[in-house]
Amino acid sequence: MSEPNRTAAGDALTHFILTMFRANNLTLSWGDRLVAPLGLTSARWQILGAIVAAGRPQPVAWLARDLGANRQNVQRIVNDLAKEEFVTFEPNPHHRRAQLVVLTEKGRQTYDDAIRLYDPRVNALAEGISVGEIETAHRVMTLLRDKLERDEDATEPS
Rank of each mutant, 00 (worst) to 15 (best):
L28G: 07
S158Q: 14
N123C: 08
V102D: 05
T27P: 01
E3H: 10
Y111N: 06
N92E: 01
G68P: 02
Q46W: 03
L26H: 00
R96H: 14
L143E: 15
D11R: 07
H15W: 09
P4H: 11
A36I: 11
P91E: 05
R71E: 12
V35N: 01
N24A: 13
G128A: 04
G132I: 15
D153W: 05
A43P: 01
V140H: 03
L26P: 00
R96D: 11
N25C: 07
R97A: 14
E133F: 06
A69G: 06
A126T: 09
T104Y: 01
T7K: 02
T88D: 09
T88E: 13
L13Q: 07
E152W: 09
D113F: 08
N5T: 12
T19I: 09
V52A: 10
V87P: 00
V35I: 04
L34V: 03
N92A: 02
R33G: 14
P4E: 02
A8N: 10
T142F: 07
A50M: 08
K106I: 12
N25K: 08
A12P: 04
P157E: 05
A69W: 12
A64H: 01
A126N: 08
E127N: 07
L38H: 03
Q46E: 13
H95W: 06
Q99V: 15
P4S: 06
Q75W: 08
L63A: 03
M20F: 09
V35G: 02
Y111P: 02
V60E: 11
G132Q: 11
L148M: 15
D151R: 10
L28A: 15
T155G: 06
G31Q: 08
D32F: 00
R97Y: 13
A9C: 10
A154M: 07
I77W: 00
D80S: 14
I134H: 09
G10D: 05
T136D: 13
A126R: 14
S130G: 03
N79P: 01
T155M: 10
D119I: 12
L38I: 05
A126H: 04
G128V: 00
N123T: 12
T110R: 01
T19M: 04
G132L: 14
L81I: 09
Q58S: 13
R96N: 14
A50K: 01
L48Q: 02
A98V: 13
N92G: 00
E3S: 15
D32Y: 02
T14K: 13
G39S: 01
I129Y: 07
F86Q: 05
E156N: 13
L81Q: 01
A61E: 15
D151H: 14
L18D: 05
G128E: 02
K83V: 11
T136M: 12
L148G: 05
K83G: 07
Q58W: 03
L34Y: 00
N25E: 06
N25D: 14
G55F: 01
L26C: 04
A8P: 12
H15T: 14
D146C: 06
Q46V: 15
